Deep mutational scan, measured.
Amino acid sequence: MATGGRRGAAAAPLLVAVAALLLGAAGHLYPGEVCPGMDIRNNLTRLHELENCSVIEGHLQILLMFKTRPEDFRDLSFPKLIMITDYLLLFRVYGLESLKDLFPNLTVIRGSRLFFNYALVIFEMVHLKELGLYNLMNITRGSVRIEKNNELCYLATIDWSRILDSVEDNYIVLNKDDNEECGDICPGTAKGKTNCPATVINGQFVERCWTHSHCQKVCPTICKSHGCTAEGLCCHSECLGNCSQPDDPTKCVACRNFYLDGRCVETCPPPYYHFQDWRCVNFSFCQDLHHKCKNSRRQGCHQYVIHNNKCIPECPSGYTMNSSNLLCTPCLGPCPKVCHLLEGEKTIDSVTSAQELRGCTVINGSLIINIRGGNNLAAELEANLGLIEEISGYLKIRRSYALVSLSFFRKLRLIRGETLEIGNYSFYALDNQNLRQLWDWSKHNLTITQGKLFFHYNPKLCLSEIHKMEEVSGTKGRQERNDIALKTNGDQASCENELLKFSYIRTSFDKI
């Protein structure tokens, strides 16, 4: 039985969820670079991206490699990797027998973001014989899940209580170790020597080791999670996991709180800001991140802002960003909400898709409305799209047979046209069989910064309504002859009103 693990408890099935942008060198404390989270699957090609990484700022997932063999891993080693800020997950990587050479110096898994409450997941690794993470000293947050690894031993010899604050939620089941077939031998045991430290858990006094050649490092209890030197002297209180010299914040392997210019500090002093819960960055760093993602459509890219001495992905609820200094300031009234469309555009074809934009005031991208039916549609669209004030790209209304009016965009005031449909149009209306009105132009103002209007096959939309939009939106004169079809717009509506004058002759039985 794995020490510190839980057996036999019912657990939810383990679901495996399925960018080499360097964020800056980590400095003297770390020998390499800070790398983003990685999802490495199918083959070993991307694994080489770990070569210079000291910190993975995010998670590391290595999974679904069915053609790899043990010899493929023999020359692979990433000794610079010290810390993973989120979680480490391995799933069905064939041929991998140990992690001792792959990650010989991995010391800390912070667990800032977890995989279903777990910071370390080893699942269905069919050839893994031992973990071998002999320098792993601290899992700051989260638990361990090690399950269905039929060859995995050296679990009962690990004292997880020396690595985690609590072992109650560890789930370590259905491994070879369960069948008591392992016969784990710690260093020196074969020669009758006791080389590794022994600890007591559940009444068992057991030597602690990761492999037959690597003991588990056990520091004096007084050192807590700070770690200790090879001689057993406690590291500085700002260290986490390990250090090369005692009581020196510049000799830590990793930091308990924050890293700044080669030393570990309790908090980031001005003019620095907390970033990702582990390091200090200056304003320029946060500003660069903001600008890199301002026009990016890459998933996970955030326009970072500053709030409460932190550089964070977005302002919290009730705050909006001051564009001059990136500071989050309290909103006066309802907060603006910028919604970034991942692929640059979004099609609204149902109430469900409209709900995804609920509360958005600025759309960074283009909207395509293609709704053919739905219950209580006008009210639903207004509830979900009615706060949109600005669209950076274009607005396209296409084959939306259920629409009679666009009044559900009740606050839309600006279409920038930074991206144009077919390279020309910022407003595009095609084949809307029941569209009769755009907006009530006596109450609604709309500016279209650039781009043209396109109207074709809107049989109940009168040309007068379209011409009014040209005047109000500032697009009059931009359109070419064929942009607004004269014969297919309003051709099934009563669009022309003329005053009919009647004269009559009164007659009676005795007068003409």
Rank of each mutant, 00 (worst) to 15 (best):
C311F: 04
C268W: 00
N195H: 10
M65Q: 07
V200G: 15
D169N: 13
K251M: 15
I109L: 07
G203A: 10
S98N: 08
P270I: 14
L174G: 11
S112D: 15
M38K: 11
G183F: 13
H302P: 06
N179L: 05
D178A: 15
S284D: 02
E130Q: 09
D39W: 14
L88P: 00
T250A: 09
K80M: 09
G227R: 03
S317A: 05
P270M: 04
V34L: 06
H28T: 10
H226M: 09
P31T: 12
I158A: 10
R69F: 13
N150R: 14
L44T: 12
P270R: 07
V34G: 07
Q61F: 06
F123A: 03
F116N: 15
C252N: 00
L102I: 12
D261L: 08
R110W: 02
Q303K: 04
S54K: 03
H127V: 02
P104Q: 01
S166P: 12
L120A: 11
C335H: 09
S161R: 10
D165L: 10
G183H: 07
N308G: 05
N170H: 05
A119W: 01
C239L: 00
Q216I: 03
W210I: 14
I158G: 04
I62Q: 00
L76T: 02
G300H: 12
R113P: 03
I201C: 14
L133P: 01
C209I: 01
P79W: 14
I40P: 00
I201Q: 11
N242S: 11
K129H: 12
T107C: 07
I222M: 04
C268I: 01
S98A: 07
Q61N: 04
G188Y: 08
P220C: 03
S323D: 15
H236W: 01
N257H: 08
A190E: 05
L99V: 09
E124K: 06
V144P: 02
V121Q: 01
M321S: 03
C219L: 03
A198I: 12
R298T: 14
I158S: 06
E130F: 12
R162S: 06
E147A: 13
P79N: 10
L88N: 01
K176E: 10
D72E: 14
Y319C: 06
E231T: 09
L164N: 05
E51H: 13
I62H: 01
V121C: 10
F115C: 05
E181H: 02
F285H: 07
V34F: 15
L50K: 00
R263K: 09
V265P: 01
L60C: 03
Q245R: 13
H127T: 12
W210K: 08
N308E: 13
N117Q: 08
D277N: 15
F78V: 04
E51K: 01
F258M: 06
F103V: 02
N42Q: 10
L128W: 01
G192M: 14
M38Y: 08
N195A: 11
N43R: 07
E238S: 08
L240R: 05
C243W: 00
C311I: 05
Y273V: 12
C243K: 00
V218H: 11
D86T: 02
N202Y: 12
K224I: 07
L233G: 13
R297M: 09
T45S: 06
C235K: 00
C328D: 03
L289H: 12
K294L: 04
S323R: 04
H290T: 12
L63Y: 09
E151Y: 14
L128E: 01
L60W: 00
V281W: 00
G58C: 01
S112Y: 06
V253E: 10
P31Q: 04
V34R: 05
S323C: 05
W160S: 01
C53R: 00
H48K: 07
L81C: 01
C209D: 03
Q245T: 05
C328P: 02
T229I: 10
L29R: 11
A190T: 11
D277G: 09
K100N: 14
T189P: 10
D247N: 06
C252K: 01
V305F: 06
N309E: 09
I82L: 08
Y134W: 14
T157H: 14
T199R: 08
M65F: 10
S143T: 06
C280Y: 00
L164Y: 03
T140N: 10
L96S: 02
Y304W: 15
C255G: 00
D248S: 06
C239H: 00
R162Y: 09
N149P: 01
S284A: 12
S317Q: 15
D248K: 03
C328W: 02
N257P: 00
Y94V: 11
T250V: 06
S98I: 02
D75S: 10
D277Y: 12
E314L: 05
G32N: 14
K294T: 06
C239T: 00
L81Q: 00
P70F: 07
T68Q: 12
L155H: 15
P316I: 07
P70I: 08
L332N: 14
R113L: 06
E33C: 14
V55D: 00
I146G: 01
Y273K: 06
N105F: 03
S317I: 09
C215F: 11
C315A: 06
F73G: 08
N195G: 08
C280S: 00
